[in-house]
Design a binder for these strands. Structure first.
Lengths: 210, 210
DNA sequence: TCCAAATTTGAGGTATCTCTCATTTTTATT
DNA sequence: AATAAAAATGAGAGATACCTCAAATTTGGA
């Protein structure tokens, strides 16, 4: 098992360390079998703890699942928010953060699989993941590149496209073209013409390395 | 329980009648709890049959799930293919069949829920559902309205958007605007400009009644 | 109507899951 | 080092799931 959250808490008290071990275990277990088929026993075995310990820390499966999903989502989106802060162009931010989100999720398949699962099991997860785009769209509107804020349904649609890109790459092979096409699709849905969408992706992703 | 497939086989032998009862039961059960949480006991109880009977007809859960999903998908797509055959315009076919597919799935929520579930559990299901669009796109290309056939990834994307439209309406309320926006999104992804996409949806759906 | 073949039944073997709790082990403070 | 508080343990109760199979029931053709 890779320790994502465990490593972050070496200096913390035992309680936090164990919690993190369990969350890491849950992430690994979900990546393996999906949320629907993951048992507490599986989680504690991966974490190297006993069955009963789980119940000292969480009420049940749903609690740790939701916590794990939101932890991972926050971790990735925070990272991306930081990295994208230097980009001045609104469209550029949308493209780069979309690409980066997909890239992270695919590079750490445990995280990606967890997010894909969470989107199907936790209400509003997809919406929350897509939410960070709103600010970037607002910027693009200020700059006259887009004309209106996305409806909540449109945010859902974009979330669905991003999820799909992650899902297919985890199931098959990592394929940068999928990220490119997804970014283009996102821009098209936001109202760019196909030509402009294509050009924008070329502009902002050709100089980026994976 | 509503009997979808059962009614079709009144004149058939007992074996076929029982099979259809079980499939109807599976559909109802999946609509209630999702594929992941549906047990054989649940299916047989809804069908009014005993536990053992299930195993006379199917190997296990996966077999009946896949069968149920493909039966429903075929039923809907066949119906739509027939209804859309009279439409001459390729873009019109795409719009009308997309809207009709979503409409059927939402009108019969059991079927819709089954399809949404199937998409998440059965490999290639989404692709197969989106597949019927290929012919319509080819027609639109002949008519100079579109320029290239969709990649298999694009078909996946369209499938994801359609699934989303069904999912949200089943979870919340039926809302025709969601179908409209989905049709528009599909056209945008296929390469139409936002303006043309909007106009096409207006043209082909405004005269249609639910 | 009769009966062989087809179909259904439901108890039960085996396995697994969730969650509890009395006991043991570890931690951290004095 | 001593010890009280915190945490971890793992056996097990109770529920439920899958699947089998010998026996009972139903079916449909001669």
């Amino acid at each position: 098992m890779r320790h994502y959250f465990q490593d972050k808490s070496t200096k913390l008290g035992k309680r936090e360390r164990t919690r993190s071990l369990l969350i890491d275990g849950a992430i690994a277990a979900i990546a393996e079998n999906g949320m629907g088929a993951t048992s507490i026993k599986e989680i504690t075995e991966i974490a190297g703890l006993s069955n009963g310990t789980f119940y000292n820390h969480f009420q049940g499966r749903d609690e740790i699942f939701e916590l794990a999903a939101y932890s991972v989502a926050k971790e990735i989106t925070d990272e991306i928010a930081e990295m994208v802060a230097v980009v001045q162009d609104g469209i550029g931010r949308i493209v780069i953060s979309t690409d980066a989100f997909i890239g992270r999720a695919v590079a750490a398949p445990d995280w990606g699989a967890l997010l894909v699962n969470a989107v199907h099991h936790i209400r509003d997860m997809r919406f929350d993941i897509g939410e960070h785009l709103r600010a970037d769209v607002a910027l693009a509107i200020e700059q006259g590149k887009l004309s209106e804020m996305p409806s909540s349904f449109l945010v859902h649609q974009i979330g669905a496209l991003i999820t799909l890109a992650v899902e297919l790459q985890i199931a098959g092979k990592a394929d940068r073209a999928i990220s490119f096409e997804t970014c283009e699709a996102v821009l098209k849905l936001l109202g760019l013409t196909p030509t402009k969408a294509h050009r924008a992706v070329q502009t902002f992703l050709s100089k980026t390395t994976v």
